[in-house]
Amino acid sequence: MLAYSTYSEAGGVGKTTTAANLAVAHARAGLKPLVVPLDPQDGDLSRLFGVDEDRTEPVDNLVRHMIRRPKGDFGDLVRTVEGVDVVPEHNMLSDVGEYLQREKDQAEAMGEAFGVHAQLLRVLREAGVPDEYDVLICDPPATEGPHLYNAIHATRSLVIPVEPSAKGRAAVEGLEALVAGLEEQLEVDVGVLAAVPIGFKNTRDQQTILGEIEYDIPEVIGERASLMEGCWMQQCSAFRYVREFRDRTRDYEVETLAQFDRIARHLEAAVGIEAPNPPEPGDLDHGVLSA
């Protein structure tokens, strides 16, 4: 199983759109992906895919499963969109740290162990996710805390969207220390599968910054603000947006889709997964997935 979290210390670098488009790229190739977004903010992956209508309702949700108080089966949480299974975010995520700490206190009072950073992994294992799915993608917030720690404990690998700027350089420079700290705190090995520069304009400074990144860079994505804003407006992936909502084909946008396809193949190859039906990169007619 391929498992990774999209993560960057810097906000606004396209972390969520990267997770969504890679998930669709995996699905286009015939794999079965599950996406677990963990960002308590409203502008999250559930919103992007249009499956967040129950986030304020008193319904079963992932947090209830993490604190061992589910109202139903894990599978009942899952929504499918564009061939991707998604566990929608819920407002309870805003207070997940408090919920987990209360459960830990109660467990310890009963003489039981309760690892606050291992509960997502427990939920996924008990639900049979490693056997049912080919790909697991977690999309935690940029800030450190229980959302991020549970995501990394569950996936053990990172895909890092990078802003090719001084801000992005600082985020990458701090990543090694962050990974080392996470490994020590969580007592797991954490690897970086790829860095994905986004918003590249091919300036001299940006070229220098890219040359300093020590992680694999399978693709460098250019400035695509209009495309990504369109995805949020229409609540869909870039693949669906270009196919259904653009009035004409723009070659540079099709090339961006091809890049997501190629990044997905790179990640799959990193763990020895061969997709059963990979498309020609950027082929809009391959494996068309409905909303």
Rank of each mutant, 00 (worst) to 15 (best):
F49A: 07
R55L: 11
T80L: 03
A194R: 11
E144V: 12
L178S: 11
E274Q: 13
V220A: 12
K15Y: 00
T256V: 14
A177L: 06
E108Y: 11
K71S: 09
S5N: 01
M66F: 05
Y4L: 05
E274G: 05
A3C: 05
L182R: 09
G83T: 02
A264V: 12
H117E: 05
P197F: 09
F49Y: 15
A177I: 03
P281F: 06
A29G: 11
A264E: 09
L158D: 12
V86H: 08
L175T: 08
P281W: 08
Q106K: 15
V242F: 07
A195K: 01
P58G: 11
A166S: 15
L148N: 08
V162Y: 01
E89C: 14
R28G: 05
Q41K: 14
V220W: 08
V84T: 03
K71M: 15
E268T: 10
P218S: 04
A180Y: 07
M110Q: 13
V159M: 04
V96K: 04
I152H: 01
R125G: 07
G12M: 09
L289S: 03
Q119G: 07
C138R: 05
V196N: 08
L38D: 05
E176T: 15
L136Y: 09
I137S: 02
Q234F: 09
L100D: 10
L48R: 10
L227K: 03
L289I: 04
K32Q: 14
E9N: 02
T6I: 06
P164K: 00
E176Q: 15
R204A: 14
P70L: 09
G199C: 04
M233Y: 04
E103K: 15
P161E: 08
F239H: 10
P278A: 13
P140R: 12
W232Q: 03
I198N: 15
V242H: 02
A10I: 05
S8E: 06
F245P: 01
S165P: 13
G230I: 07
H153R: 11
L48E: 03
K201I: 03
V135I: 15
E223G: 08
P197S: 02
C138T: 15
F245N: 14
A269F: 03
V87P: 00
A142C: 11
W232P: 00
S157M: 09
A194I: 03
A275S: 13
I198Q: 14
I213K: 05
E53G: 12
G14E: 02
Q207K: 14
T155H: 09
R240D: 15
Y7C: 00
Q259K: 15
S237Y: 06
G191K: 08
V63N: 00
D283R: 13
P70D: 04
V159W: 01
D44H: 12
A109E: 05
P58H: 13
G199I: 00
Q101T: 13
P197H: 10
K32R: 15
H65N: 01
P37K: 07
E274R: 13
N91V: 12
V59L: 02
H266W: 11
L120K: 02
G272W: 06
R122I: 01
R243D: 07
M228L: 12
E132I: 10
V190H: 08
A291T: 06
Q234N: 14
S157C: 06
A107T: 06
G43T: 13
D283T: 14
V220K: 04
F49I: 07
A3E: 11
Q206V: 03
V24T: 11
E229H: 12
E144Y: 10
P276R: 03
A269I: 01
Q259S: 13
A194W: 07
E108C: 02
L186E: 10
